[in-house]
Amino acid sequence: MSAPAINSTTDAVTYLVGQHRRIRELFDEVAGAADTGERERKFFELRRLLAVHETAEEEIIHPLARRAIDNGDAVVDARLEEENKAKKQLTDLESVDVGSAEFETRLAALRQAVLTHAEHEETEEFNRLRAEIDGEELRRLRSTVELAEAMAPTRPHPGVESAKANVLAGPFAAMMDRAKDLISKPR
């Protein structure tokens, strides 16, 4: 299952904002699933998109923002703290029965955390990157983001929120995650 198709002429920021839209849709689809099988399939897709999306941001976008925008370190550090909390929530949610009331409660809390994080990224990081980075460079970065997602772990790994940590742990985690996905993928 790959990231949602976004127009190939878009830049990295537009691509990631499109994924934020798809993540919002998936939260709604998981919550509104007609049965536990559908809920499990939609949650699998949501979890995977969240994991690869965050990895690409951590490896490509956040390091660029640190360098390119005023007060970039503080902006990125705040986003990384949010990402770590959301990864922990997502990891905890994975162990809960998708048909339970507890799952619904935890899913709602995760949704709120993720959507608040996405809003912060879009307003405090992405918009400022658009103002500072040439549009052509952002278009070229799109393929780099897609490549990072193609090689990213497909499950959350709290504590791995930096480009360096992703490079060190990412390939092994991605291999293990993809093996687990093959075994546990909902039918």
Rank of each mutant, 00 (worst) to 15 (best):
D134K: 09
M175V: 14
P158I: 07
A174V: 07
S162G: 09
E59R: 15
A131N: 08
L26Y: 00
R106S: 02
A5R: 12
A65D: 00
R187T: 07
L26D: 07
E102W: 02
H120S: 15
G170M: 07
A165Y: 11
G72Y: 12
H117R: 13
T144F: 04
T116I: 07
T91N: 08
R48C: 07
A12P: 06
A56H: 02
R111L: 06
Q112T: 15
E102T: 12
L50E: 03
I183F: 09
R41T: 00
L182P: 10
H62T: 03
R48P: 06
A131F: 05
L49I: 05
A34C: 04
I6H: 02
G170N: 12
A65R: 08
E59M: 15
R111W: 07
I60M: 11
E57L: 10
T116A: 12
R39G: 03
M175I: 14
V96N: 06
T154S: 11
F172C: 13
P156G: 04
R67E: 12
A65K: 09
T144W: 01
G135W: 00
V160W: 01
K85V: 01
E94S: 13
I60P: 08
S95K: 15
E122S: 14
E161Q: 12
E119M: 05
A150G: 08
A163K: 10
S184I: 14
R178N: 13
G159E: 05
I69S: 06
M1I: 13
A3W: 15
D35S: 04
L129I: 10
L50T: 03
F103G: 01
S162L: 01
T116L: 08
A34S: 05
R106A: 04
A51W: 06
A68N: 08
A78M: 12
E59A: 14
